[in-house]
Computed example of a mutant assay.
Amino acid sequence: MIKKILLPIEQLDPLNPVLRAANRHFPSAQIHLLHVVKLPSTNPVPLPTSSFGEYVPVMPDPTTEGRALREAEEALHALGKGEVILSGNVVQEIVSRATRGYDLILMGTAGKAGIDRLLLGSVAEGVLREAPIPVMTIRRDVDIELPDFRRVFQRGILLTDASPWAEWGEAYVKMAFADTTWQRLHVVPDETQMAMLPLSLTGIHLPIERNQEKLEEAEQHLQQTGGGEALLGDPAQVMLGRAASGEVDLLAISTRPRGLLDRFLYGPVAAQVVRESPVPVLVARLHPSE
C-alpha cells in the first residue's frame, strides 16, 4: 500500500491536475510537495558593450532569489505539506529525497503534445534512471471530474518477462496496489519486423521460427508463474493499445538495477509509453540493495 508520496510540482495552483489526481488516486496517502526554484545559469556570457568580447559570469541576484522563494513558499503552503528549495539541479533534488521514507515519486506529463517542463530531456531520464524508488507518471490533461475517472486503480497491465527484475517488479506492484486486478503480459518482439538487422543478429533460425520459439518459451514461463498472456508485437504499441481501450487504469513496467533501463524502456519505447499513455504509468526499478 502506498503511504507516502513525493510529488515534484511546478504549477503551484490548487487546480493543478496532477495534484488533484494524486489526491483522488491516493486519498489515504501522505503527499509531500516539492517545488524547485531553479537558479539562473552562471555560465559566462559576452559583455554586450565590450569590443574585446570578454566573458563574465552572470551571478544570481540574492534579492530576486529571496523574493521568489517567499512567493513560492506562500503558494505551496496553501496547497498542503511540502518544501520549496532553490537549486540548479532538479533531478538531484528529487532523487536525493526519494529515500526519506517515500513509497513513490509521482510526476506529471503533458500527454501526446510532449512531456512537460519538469520532465523534459535529462530530467525525465535522470529521475527514471536514478530514482531508488518507483516512479509513477500521470497525464496532466486527464479530466478527473469526468464520471468515468476512477478514484482507485481497478485494473492494471503488468509488462513482464523471465528476468529477475520483472519478478521483483511484479511482487512490488501487487503489494503496493493490492486492490488492483493485474493482467500479466509478455510481449515478444516480432523479428519479422527487424528486417534492417543483419541476419546474424536474428540467430540461426529464420525470424518466423525464432518468433514461434520465443513465444512458446514466454507462454511456458507464464504458465509456470501464475498465468498471463503472451503475444508478438511492439511492447509500447501493445501497452498503449490496451490503455486506449479504456479497460485498464494503470500500466506497470519493471527496470533493471544500477539505473540501466530494460528493453521495454529503452530509447523511444519509454518516451512513447510515458508520453502517450492515457492512463498512469508505474516504473518500478530494482534497487541494487534489494
Rank of each mutant, 00 (worst) to 15 (best):
I94D: 04
E229I: 15
V135K: 03
A72V: 10
G227D: 00
M194L: 15
Q237V: 10
Q11F: 09
P8L: 08
Q30K: 14
H205D: 14
A162I: 09
G156I: 06
G126Q: 02
V90P: 11
L79M: 09
L47N: 15
F153A: 10
G66V: 09
G267C: 08
K4Y: 02
E170S: 08
T192A: 04
P207H: 02
Q223E: 08
A236P: 10
Q237M: 10
R256Q: 14
P280K: 05
G101H: 03
S41V: 00
H287N: 08
Q154M: 09
E170H: 04
P147F: 01
G169Q: 01
M59V: 13
E10D: 07
R242D: 09
R67P: 04
M59I: 11
D234G: 04
Y55W: 13
G228Q: 06
R20V: 12
A22M: 07
W168V: 14
R155S: 07
H287E: 12
A78T: 10
E93F: 00
L33R: 02
A230Y: 00
E216Y: 06
Y102T: 10
L250M: 10
Q30N: 10
N16G: 06
P17D: 02
G228N: 06
G108S: 09
L260K: 15
G88S: 11
L265K: 08
V36D: 02
P46K: 08
L76Q: 04
N16C: 10
A176Q: 02
D141W: 00
R285N: 01
H287F: 06
S289R: 14
E71G: 12
T63S: 10
Y172S: 11
E125G: 12
G203F: 00
P17G: 01
A252W: 00
P147I: 02
T181P: 07
R139D: 03
A252Q: 05
G88H: 08
R139M: 03
P147A: 06
E216H: 12
G233R: 03
L201F: 14
S200C: 06
V152R: 15
A21K: 11
L158W: 06
